[in-house]
Design a binder for these strands. Sequence first.
DNA 1: ATCAGTGCAAAAGGTTTGCAACCGA
DNA 2: TCGGTTGCAAACCTTTTGCACTGAT
Lengths: 137, 137
Amino acid sequence: MEQESRELRRVGLKVTHPRMRILQLFEEDGERHFTAEDIYKRLLADQEDIGLATVYRVLTQFEAAGILIKHNFEGGQAVYELDRGRHHDHMIDVDTGKVIEFVSEEIERLQREIAAKHGYVLEDHSLVLYVRAKRPK
Amino acid sequence: MEQESRELRRVGLKVTHPRMRILQLFEEDGERHFTAEDIYKRLLADQEDIGLATVYRVLTQFEAAGILIKHNFEGGQAVYELDRGRHHDHMIDVDTGKVIEFVSEEIERLQREIAAKHGYVLEDHSLVLYVRAKRPK
DNA sequence: ATCAGTGCAAAAGGTTTGCAACCGA
DNA sequence: TCGGTTGCAAACCTTTTGCACTGAT
């Protein structure tokens, strides 16, 4: 509560009800990756009267402020997660949709090398592994 | 011409005018990566009377048939390229939009290792490097 | 009183689909 | 012939935008 409003002020955004509720959602334990609609539905379920357009606007502002990272995984809907400062990539279980985070310093290094080899500097990258459990449930 | 109709029959698709023209576009030298709209505009410029919906339908069929690969790079529009059987990843020059292909057996191996380490088998992956020329023009 | 922030509805952008006409094996 | 294919328009889905209203300073 206190923490969230400090966070909002820190990035220069007014502390409003929709912003607080959405930020809290991301900072709760449990799910870390949400689409705009996920958030909209959760708020609806909590009796909140927050429009979908507002959800989109807040997500965009949070992304611009560096609070959230936006991912364009397959499937049309953008997915957002808190930017906790530790870069990582994602693995998606194609059967369950579960998102697993991972870090590989070696892959990061290879990417920079490959870009350099072609005369470029790496600005950003997107790596998603689509995986299936070894022993299907 | 002959080659294209054989290709179409091989994958079990009737040889029709729209399918031929679109397949030819991909097999021409030069550009390898097209959006549906790129194709639609090229066909228009060639006086072809092929609807955008048909372009989408043909692209979807070609993808299902394994002739094309579909990429969901950032920016809303899906990009298609011929599946020449040699897997590769992509680098995109963020200034010019240019697409560069590359292969890194080492990254491929690391990806499989990471998936395995988490108890999964790698089914597919998507890797895109966003790069900027070392010495800006 | 002011002005950012909000909800709603409409618009936008990319892609898909229903349908009647058409065409290729 | 006749079922697959196509063009057109309408529908769809996600995201953005216009606008009048609200609410905090």
